[in-house]
């Protein structure tokens, strides 16, 4: 009882004594588990390497500086590839994801029993596997190169596009849809006039957002042979060419900053 009487006074407390005790006990258990795990991790760590880490970092940093700027001339082409992988991949994902979203949304799906679970399965399975893993698979299926990278980005993004879009479809104002239905419009016309205008802001926002994420993801796809700037990062790391690695990292950083700037501008313009 949070309310107790002390003579004339009614005293209110947030929790009674037993509940307060339980909460303290919960904290005690939590801290004990944390300490125990810390002990296990600590036993399994070779502390020599950790103590050594700052020296190694300084060493690599020293070798990586100054950046080898002349390497830049070789990087424009793969950077352009990387941007294309991200952009084409996003476009493909949109083309495939939009129909999936309409099949998955409860208010637009033609069949709740069969097609909707199928659409949800597509969403979950494409989303749950990282694009690097998709790229690994696709490189072994269709061979290394930009095409494998583009497909990897596209497949990974289908679930993202479809999930966010179907949530937007489920949240629309049904009155507007009813009004279009009442005019005698066909099902497709109801979608085009009653639903599409309502989901346009969400659609534009999520597309640009996904493109922005894909720029970042496509920079590392080359690590597994799926084309783009990651390929050069991989080969520079392999031959321990640290000054080249620095140039590549700076380039990726600038590309990501620019894509973020573009996507925030576009989103502001549309919404």
């Amino acid at each position: 009882m949070p309310v107790t009487t002390k003579g004339e006074l009614k005293v209110w407390q947030r929790r009674d004594r037993a509940k307060q005790f339980k909460i303290w006990f919960g904290w005690f258990i939590g801290v004990a588990i944390f300490m125990f795990c810390w002990k296990i991790i600590s036993d399994a760590t070779t502390w020599f390497f950790v103590y050594d880490a700052p020296r190694i970092a300084v060493d690599i940093g020293g070798r990586a500086w100054p950046p080898r700027w002349s390497y830049l001339s070789e990087l424009w082409k793969p950077m352009w590839d990387t941007i294309n992988i991200a952009t084409l991949g996003t476009l493909l994902a949109i083309i495939m994801g939009v129909p999936v979203a309409f099949l998955a949304a409860t208010n637009t799906t033609p069949s709740k029993r069969f097609l909707r679970p199928l659409a949800l399965l597509i969403i979950v399975s494409t989303r749950s596997i990282n694009s690097l893993v998709w790229a690994l698979l696709l490189v072994s299926i269709i061979g290394p190169g930009i095409f494998a990278g583009t497909l990897a980005i596209a497949i990974r993004s289908i679930g993202f596009v479809a999930k966010l879009l179907y949530e937007a479809i489920e949240e629309i104002d049904v009155n507007q849809v009813e009004a279009i239905q009442a005019t005698g419009a066909s099902k497709l016309q109801v979608i085009a006039y009653g639903i599409v205008p309502q989901i346009m802001p969400a659609f534009a926002g999520l597309s640009v957002f996904r493109w922005d994420i894909n720029i970042r993801e496509s920079t590392i796809l080359g690590l597994v042979g799926a084309g783009g700037i990651g390929l050069y990062l991989q080969s520079s790391l392999n031959i321990l060419a640290w000054p080249q690695v620095t140039v590549i990292l700076i380039m990726i950083l600038i590309a990501v900053v620019i894509s973020e700037w573009v996507s925030s501008k576009v989103r502001l313009a549309i919404i």
Partner: peptide
């Protein structure tokens, strides 16, 4: 339905059109 017009309480216009 083409022969039956409907007018709504909250207007039910498509806002973004």
């Amino acid at each position: 339905r083409r022969e039956m017009g409907m007018i709504f309480q909250e207007y039910a216009l498509v806002d973004r059109l």
